[in-house]
């Protein structure tokens, strides 16, 4: 991919980490530092019909990345019951198209821990 700067790495991030409360972990900033693109999950307080359709579309796009050797990870918020329900729903949407949930980092709010997780990922086969 001459002249193309993509990182071949995607973090599927909980909305609460894309739009953090003041003082909360800003996953966008960590992903930017580590060269990850972000796919945002819907807010856990969205109506079920909106959230379900959103997750289905996330799964469809992830299928394309997973089939082509991009590194995909899931970044969630630890101890978040609504987030856990969403995680289960995303897993079902992915299983329906033949994929498992990607490797996950359940964040306790520590930016360094998230950065360490992202930097520990192997080189994606698409980038080799």
């Amino acid at each position: 991919m001459e002249g193309d700067a993509r990182g071949f790495r995607i973090a599927v991030c909980a909305d609460a980490l894309v739009n953090p409360e003041p003082g909360g972990l800003d996953a966008l900033e960590v992903c930017r530092r580590t060269g990850f693109g972000v796919m945002q999950l819907p807010a856990t307080w969205y109506p079920d019909d909106v959230a379900a359709a959103w997750l289905e579309q996330v799964a469809e796009q992830l299928d394309e990345y997973l089939r082509h050797g991009y590194d995909v990870v899931l970044v969630t918020r630890a101890g978040d019951p609504a987030g856990e329900q969403q995680r289960v729903a995303l897993g079902a949407a992915l299983r329906a198209i033949g994929h498992d949930l990607p490797p996950e980092h359940a964040s306790e709010g520590d930016a360094d821990a998230l950065e360490e997780f992202l930097r520990s990922r192997p080189v994606p086969s698409a980038a080799r």
Binding site: R9, I10, C31, G35, V38, Y65
Partner: peptide, 17 residues
């Protein structure tokens, strides 16, 4: 704008965001 990996080949201006 949050995921430059979605661009066509040659179109990504940065790794991700």
């Amino acid at each position: 704008l949050l995921n430059q990996n979605s661009k066509t080949d040659g179109g990504a201006r940065c790794p991700g965001i």
